[in-house]
Each structure stands twice: as structure tokens, then as C-alpha cells.
Amino acid sequence: MIKELTILPGKDKNANRENFDQITIQAGETISIVGPTGSGKTAFITDIELLAQGDTATKRRILINGKIPREEVRYDPAQKPIAMITQNTKCFADLSVEDFLSVHARARKIRSKKIINDTIELANKFTGEKIKPHYKVTVLSGGQTRSLLIADALLIGAAPIILLDEIENAGIFKQEVIEIIQNTSKIIIFVTHDPVIALLTKKRLIMGTGAVKKILCQNESETGAAQNLLELDRKMGVIRENLRAGFEITNELLNVSFA
């Protein structure tokens, strides 16, 4: 059981020690990591994914339930309690979608055959153009690849800690993703430039020059703002999907969407 995740301070790009004693994230908490590009956001979640023990560029150390994780937990995918959705929009494996998923299920020691179709079905909820089991993963579009990798992380990775790197990219339906992962007992960490996602999480970590600069908790007016932004985002979504489907944007549509 994962009760908490602890991040011990490392060093910033100028080799100065990070200005916190430890960051502890409890099961069920959602966190967002924000900051300019190059500020160390991806490095922060990569440290978590690798369960770094002072042996990454940042020198951070990661504890699970207050303890240094055992070696097997670090190196065996079947025991790893972490699923990470990276920014990759490309797969290099010369495998079909179903073969890719079945090898990954084997790596994570999942026996059920049903998981393959379930994963493809879930991926198809996030993407416009549907993915078929016999497609090669190498020919999937950027958005399809991300959708597949997200569904894979949720069902095959199926870990108590989920790390998502800029999920808003590549034109996938992010609200569907957020709906599925919220209100679970998982630890969920978003790296994001999206104000909606940033305001929806309980805590925000602000990064700069490779270090955690500030930790903020969501305040009441932010919760309100998040709801407004969510509504705005939904409206944007309607227009985006209409544009994508080749429709013209009419006054009627605008009235319905923005009423």
C-alpha cells in the first residue's frame, strides 16, 4: 500500500540546495507542477519515476511510505508503483497496437487478455480518429499515440502513483482523462501549462532554475475560478470539435455554447 510519497531536496542548476526540507504527498492528493519551460518540471517527475536516490542530475531522493524503496521496486516494472505519461508522441517499437500492449501487460505481470481491448477502447475515448488493434504503433498520429499511452498507463500501468507530463498537448480530450483519474485514492501529479489543470489540483509546485521555488495550496477563490475556467474550456472544446469536423461556426452555435 502506498500511503505517502516523499521528495527530499536536491540541487538547482547552479548547484544550490533546494529550499525545502521535504515534500510529502498523501494518497488521494493531486498536485500540479508549473513553471516556465526549462525550469525543471519534467526532471522533477522523472526523479519520481526513477525513484531517484541521489543518482540523477538533480540529486533528489524519493521515499515511499517514508522509506527508501527496495531495489526490485526500482528496477522491475511489475513491482513499480508508478505509471508515467511522458510527452512522447512517437513509438519506435515495430509492433502492432495489440502486440505492444500484450508485451507491456506481460512486463507488468497482468494475465488477463481482456485488458488489451479495454485499453484500446479507453484510448479511443481520448482521440478523434479511432485506433484499431492491428495498427502498427509506429504509424499512429501524435494524438493517437498519446491517447494509447495514457490508456496504457491507466489500465496496464495501473499504478497508485500517476505522473502526467503536459497532458493538454497533442489535441486529445483532456477533460475525459481528468474525469477518469480524479477522485481515486491515487497520487496524481500533473506537469502542466494549462490553468484549468493547475487550478483544479490541491497543491501547486512552482519551479525555477531546476528547483522547487514555492509550494502553494489551492485557495477558495481559485476553486471558483477553476469552475469558471472549466466551463470556458468546455465551450472552447465545442468550438474546437466543430472546427475539426469541418463545420462552420454560426451565431446559433455561439449562442448555445456561450449562453
Binding site: 522523472t46 528496477y75 516494472p77 508515467m84 512522447n88 508485451v103 507491456h104 512486463a107 499511452l149
Partner: peptide, 27 residues
């Protein structure tokens, strides 16, 4: 490993283990 997704890394690791189950794997 910074160039590929976690899933793809784990798929490759599984393929290496298929060839040599006892190998010590590091990424």
C-alpha cells in the same frame, strides 16, 4: 530513456528478459 515513453521502455525490457531472464536490467 528520455527519448521514449515509460510503456515503450518496459516493452523493450520485457523483450530483453525474454532473451535472458536472469540479466540485471538498468535504465
Amino acid at each position: 530513456i528520455d527519448l521514449v515513453s515509460q510503456a515503450e521502455r518496459e516493452v523493450l525490457i520485457q523483450k530483453i528478459k525474454d532473451v535472458h531472464p536472469g540479466i540485471i536490467l538498468l535504465e
